[in-house]
Structure formats: structure tokens, C-alpha cells
């Protein structure tokens, strides 16, 4: 099913919650989103950055995967 704004909000809450004690992590995530919107980075570029940022947080990576277009997926190591 197509994801809705509520799904995005709930995912963003999850990210904020996870990094409650490290607000700079969420800021960095926002920077990645800004660069994507301004087309400084493309989809593979976003994947690369998010993969590094959320390294060690498989639940956040799996959540992020749901927003990726078909054919893209970040592998999660558990």
C-alpha cells in the first residue's frame, strides 16, 4: 500500500525517540533530506548516507527501507 504522511510522521518520531540523547543525529538526518530535496544527492546517495548514519540501528534502517522505491533496499545485518 502507498505510504501516507502519517507513516512518515510516525517514522520520524521513531528516529527522534531513538536519538533522544543525540539530537545532532536527527539534525544530520534532516540535512540528508535537505540535500536530497535540493537534488545535491540522488536516491543511492541518500541510501549511502542513511546507511552510515543509522549504522547499528537495524529497526531504523528497516523503517527507512519502506520509503525506498522498488529495486532499492538497505541490507540489515542483525
Amino acid at each position: 500500500r502507498p505510504l501516507k504522511v502519517e507513516d512518515a510522521l510516525s517514522y520520524l518520531d521513531q528516529v527522534k525517540l531513538q536519538f533522544g540523547s543525540q539530537p545532532q543525529m536527527y539534525s544530520e538526518f534532516l540535512d540528508i533530506m535537505k540535500e536530497f530535496k535540493s537534488q545535491c544527492i540522488d536516491t543511492p546517495g541518500v541510501i549511502n548516507r542513511v546507511c552510515q548514519l543509522f549504522n547499528g540501528h537495524p529497526d531504523l534502517i528497516m523503517g527507512f527501507n519502506t520509503f525506498l522505491p522498488p529495486g532499492y533496499k538497505i541490507d540489515v545485518q542483525i
Partner: peptide, 19 residues
């Protein structure tokens, strides 16, 4: 753009930050 749901996530992230 080829990644509409990712664009949606970016839009929501950036607009919710402004408000």
C-alpha cells in the same frame, strides 16, 4: 522524480521541522 515516497518523507521531515 523516481522516488515519490522518499520525497514525501523528506517533505514531511522538513516541514514538520519548520512548524
Amino acid at each position: 522524480m523516481a522516488a515519490p515516497q522518499l520525497v514525501m518523507l523528506a517533505n514531511v521531515a522538513l516541514t514538520s521541522e519548520v512548524s
